[in-house]
Design a protein around this nucleic acid. Structure first.
Lengths: 101, 101
DNA sequence: TATAGTTGTTACCTGATGGTAAGTAGTTAC
DNA sequence: GTAACTACTTACCATCAGGTAACAACTATA
C-alpha cells in the first residue's frame, strides 16, 4: 500500500514542521531550532537523521572555523510539495468541520 | 499548523487501510476484518471508534436477528479522497526513487 | 584564561501504540 | 443442548515515540 509508505516517512510530531521550514530554503541547525519552537536538539538531530536516510534532506558540512552544517531538501523532499498542500487543505477543512472542538 | 492536524487524524498503522476499504462502500465489522488482513478485532474496534470520534466514519447498528453493524464514511471521510490520492502518488514516487530498498 | 556560541550526544524516564489471547453476549442452525 | 457466527471487550505485555537534563568538542572573542 503506497499511501502507507508515504505516511511512514512523514509521520511523527516533527517531520512535517522540519520539511516545511526547509521549503523556505537551506537552513542551519540553530536556525531550524529557532524556527521550530519547542523542538529539542535531540529530536531535531534524530529526525534530521531519519529524513536524511529517507533521502528527503541533505546534510552539508562546512569545514569552516566555527563548524557549520547546512540542511536542505533533496529533489524527493521538494516533491512533497503537492502532498503538503493537500494535507494543509484537508487540515483546514477538518478544523472548519469540527467547529465545536 | 493545519497539516499536522490532518496528520494526527490519519496517523497510525490502521486508519488509512480502514478508510481506503470504506471508500469502496459500506462494510460490516467482519467484512473489514477480512478485507484488512492481519488486523485484530481489538485494533479494528479501537480505530473505528477513533475514526467515529473524529467524524470520519459513521457506525450504524441494525437491530436485526443476528446483530449487525455497518460502517461507512461521513462526508468528511469522503473528503479525504484527494489527500489519499496524493499520498498514494507520492508513495509510488518514493518507491521508484528508493530503488535499492 | 574564561565565557559564549556552534552542533550535536548520552542517559534516563514516561506514555502511547500495537500485539496476543481469552472471554462475553445474543442468535441461529444442527 | 451444543456448536457456530456475529461483534466486540478485557487483561496483559512489549516496543517505540518523545521529553528532560546534562554533557561534549571545537572555535572565537574578551
Amino acid at each position: 500500500m503506497a499511501a502507507r509508505d508515504a505516511l511512514e516517512v512523514i509521520q511523527g510530531k516533527w517531520r512535517i514542521p522540519i520539511v516545511i521550514s526547509l521549503t523556505y530554503g537551506t537552513k542551519r541547525f540553530g536556525e531550524l531550532q529557532r524556527d521550530i519552537s519547542d523542538i529539542s536538539p535531540k529530536m531535531l538531530s534524530q529526525e534530521l537523521k531519519a529524513l536524511e536516510i529517507n533521502q528527503i534532506v541533505v546534510r552539508k558540512l562546512h569545514d569552516s572555523m566555527p563548524v557549520s552544517v547546512e540542511y536542505s531538501l533533496t529533489p524527493l523532499g521538494l516533491s512533497l510539495k503537492n502532498l503538503l498542500v493537500e494535507l494543509r487543505l484537508w487540515g483546514k477543512h477538518l478544523r472548519s468541520e469540527i467547529v465545536g472542538r
